[in-house]
């Protein structure tokens, strides 16, 4: 072990910035959820809606290709140098939960490139209902599911559904087509989420993701208040 005097200059090893809830730098928002639920669509919507008022950037965790990053570039919601894609070694949930190194590298790269950054969205690779972000990587996380998976999804639970800071049930426009009962989804989510918010939205009908953007603004405000 190093002699004690060497420790004097160092921060407490157990001092976990995430747990303290006042990490410096931009607010990091995780976007998790199953494949195809609308994570990239939501990221694009948030970029469009918040891009004018906030200095923001996105990290994507594509599983194999750079599809998501390319989508954001193609749709020109963000300039190239504000999008970073990381490889996750076939294990998207490991990269956001168990070993977040590659994502931290990407966030830090974006921070160094854009010193005034206020918001970083981290989109996870599409995974399953058990995947959630480590709070070592993000400050708050949004879990995105869609109605097409059936109205049983909130009831099935899993850390993403129960513990995320915001649950988004997307594609409500499809509910009649797939026979999903939105009231059941709202009620089940409420039952397992211990008071944490759930939003039922359709990015098709509201491409600005107005409600989710409002929630993100509120997160930024409450963090600013904490820092003050």
């Amino acid at each position: 072990m190093p002699p004690d005097h060497l420790l004097d200059d160092y921060v407490d090893p157990y001092d976990d910035p995430a747990a303290r809830g006042h990490r410096h730098g931009p607010l990091r928002v995780g976007l998790g959820g199953p494949v195809g639920s609308g994570k990239t669509a939501l990221a694009a919507a948030l970029c469009r809606t918040l891009g004018a008022e906030l200095d923001l950037a996105v990290v994507t965790n594509d599983i194999y290709t750079t599809e998501d990053a390319d989508f954001l570039r193609r749709n020109a919601v963000l300039p190239d140098d504000r999008i970073e894609a990381v490889q996750t070694g076939c294990c998207p949930h490991t990269a956001i939960r168990d070993d977040i190194t590659a994502n931290l590298d990407a966030v830090e790269l974006l921070e160094s490139r854009h010193p005034g950054l206020e918001l970083v969205l981290v989109e996870s690779g599409g995974d399953n209902l058990t995947a959630s972000f480590s709070y070592g990587l993000v400050d708050v996380q949004i879990f995105v599911v869609d109605v097409a998976g059936g109205d049983k999804v909130p009831r099935k639970g899993g850390p993403g559904v129960t513990a995320s800071d915001l649950l988004v049930v997307n594609k409500t426009d499809l509910a009649p087509l797939v026979g999903a009962d939105l009231d059941v989804m709202r009620r089940d989510a409420g039952a397992v989420r211990a008071g944490k918010p759930t939003l039922l939205i359709s990015l098709r009908e509201d491409p600005a993701a107005t409600e989710v953007a409002g929630w993100v603004r509120q997160q930024l405000r409450s963090r600013a208040a904490q820092h003050a």
């Binding site: 490889q87 070694g89 168990d98 070993d99 190194t101 590659a102």
Partner: peptide
């Protein structure tokens, strides 16, 4: 399991 990023290489 040491979270040093090895799993992505």
């Amino acid at each position: 399991r040491l979270p040093a990023g090895g799993h992505t290489h």
